[in-house]
Design a binder for these strands. Structure first.
Lengths: 340, 340
DNA sequence: CTGTTAGCGCTTTCAG
DNA sequence: CTGAAAGCGCTAACAG
């Protein structure tokens, strides 16, 4: 492997000149620039990433902190990773994934202090999140996919839950539904302050109030079995129910089963809308689900770009981006016929 | 951030001694060792990863090459990433994900030559794979999740397709099925030599022959619509069909729809087994699918461990591991009643 | 516009 | 069992 010195010698210039030519950190005469680049690919030279990082104090590596949660891994998460990695690559960065328990502060501290990564993208953020506290405390650059409670001074991208729920409820209201349930994630997740669970809940309540509908909420573990049980509860509590908004993909098959068990049909007897979901999930179901798809690739990409921008700019600019879900009407929702 | 020099001074030893204490590269008296470690965490010292990498010529970073394919991203792939990253972390390595087009040799070359990563895990391997050719040529350490055609000299972990298909066919044969279809991935994917498509196909043919059953194959794009069309074709070609083995999760909803359209029920009129699938997918369906689950976490973990072992050992040991799928019988398969 | 040089923080001979 | 010192390959003052 040739080094920069080899290139410099061969091109008859100082090593630093090669460095400046590569980084564009300083004007170089077109002539020598050409010569240097010619030599570079004559020798097949590649800058050594570690050496560069050590000298410049910037590794051009960013980390994606990837907590493994109760909810388990979904397609959504995968798309965060790949789109964030893509964006990183396009900007000359590498992306390391750092999967770990949510609460392992030590591991986190280690990663941030070994000089390997310039910054970090944090996902699966809770309103009150230990990781955020730590990162703030040690003043380590990061961005969030999601957002914690007091996030004014931090860059983030998140889903616009208020709008998503408002849109969804409006849609159902226009179809004539008056009694709508919201199927949230589990009580434990909600209580832990997991952003989406809390914000979607608030959005639902707000939207329902504003639209003058009756709304009931239930929490549900991420399994078909739990969905099945919860549906029957729900009907007990609200016999006039004609529509369900579910933010819990894994419970949905159970809901659908329970609906079928009762001799009902979707969407005739019940409309079902999955939010923060994905087309792939939706199309696996029968009928295919009406969904508000999470803008996963945008979230991942922006999460990375926000961080990188912050890393490259002198004054720390904090951007806050809220993205709407993409609403797609498929077969699981329709006009309300019951108690019309 | 304190450096090693700070530690050395404070402990009253030479910097090199601190280094040896950390790496255990050379015997240190228990006494000074203690002293050094005491100072280390008194100062909150962390070794600097880049400096260490530059000096030792080993970054302790490995890459996971992650081609984005037609098949799109599934839960399976995610589990590769997280389990490989976990295994890496446990062994003191970091895992960078490198998503890119399958055929971009230049990018690959760049990644391997910038000194950032010590080795690479390659996934989604085809029988004849350009990436493998390149890596072999430049003699870059790597392991495969999957395997190419002539892989004797390379470490890999892969699914044991022959066994998986044999088991699946045996299972169906015992239930009395005599006419079985195999739903492969698309013709294009098969023709490209994508390992699973080719090996599962071969396994199916072999198993069917050996068991004396009638087997038909069809290729199918990864969409419900394609599954729907293909099912009808299939019945045209083989009217006695009573069982389908599908290695194409995304087509399955279409199959099930087509079955329902015909007024048939699963599993009474048709048994359906999904192979190289996952419990999560299986439980989203109605009825839940009988599957041969891909051993994803094992594959990811072993892929990383194989590579790391190879990196750490002096003589390059190449291990070849073939893992069976985990067969789980759920509601989509049962005894054959038709033309019994 | 270009060259010289002192590090970045650690590993690893070589010497004791 | 421990020290001294020479780099790893690059960047970034500083000096022209």
């Amino acid at each position: 492997m040739p080094t920069m010195l080899d290139v410099a010698k061969r091109a008859g210039v100082a090593p630093s000149t090669v460095s400046y030519a590569i980084n564009g950190t300083r004007p170089i005469s077109e002539e020598t620039r050409q010569r240097i680049f010619a030599v570079m690919d004559e020798l097949g030279y590649r800058p050594h990433a570690l050496a560069r990082g050590l000298a410049s104090k910037r590794s051009r590596i960013i980390a994606l902190h990837f907590p493994v949660s109760e909810r388990g891994l979904g397609i959504t998460e995968l798309e965060f990773i790949t789109s964030a990695a893509d964006a990183a690559t396009e900007n000359g960065y590498n992306l390391v994934v750092w999967p770990s328990e949510l609460h392992d502060q030590n591991k986190l501290r280690q990663l941030t202090q070994q000089g390997l990564v310039d910054g970090m993208i944090v996902m699966e953020v809770c309103l009150k999140d230990e990781r955020i506290d730590l990162l703030r405390e040690i003043d380590f650059p990061f961005s969030m996919i999601g957002r914690c409670a007091d996030a004014e001074d931090i860059g983030y991208v998140d889903i616009d839950f208020a709008k998503t729920l408002q849109d969804t409820i409006n849609y159902l209201a226009e179809l004539g539904h008056k009694h709508i349930a919201f199927l949230n994630q589990s009580q434990e997740i909600f209580d832990s302050g997991y952003g989406p669970a809390v914000r979607a809940q608030a959005g639902f309540e707000q939207a329902v109030r504003q639209t003058g509908l009756e709304g009931v909420t239930c929490f549900c573990h991420a399994t078909p079995r739990a969905g099945h049980e919860v549906f029957n509860d729900l009907l007990g509590r609200c016999p006039n129910l004609t529509a369900i908004v579910a933010m819990n993909d894994r419970a949905i098959p159970g809901i659908m089963q329970a609906v079928a068990d009762r001799g009902w049909r979707i969407p005739k007897d019940l409309s079902l809308v999955a939010i923060i979901s994905s087309a792939h999930i939706a199309e696996m179901m029968m009928p295919p689900l009406t969904t508000a798809d999470a803008p996963t690739t945008e979230l991942g990409r922006l999460g990375a770009e926000l961080l990188i921008r912050q890393l490259e700019e002198q004054e720390k600019s904090v951007a806050h981006v809220l993205l709407p879900c993409h609403f797609v009407s498929r077969g699981s929702s329709g006009p309300c016929y019951r108690n019309a």
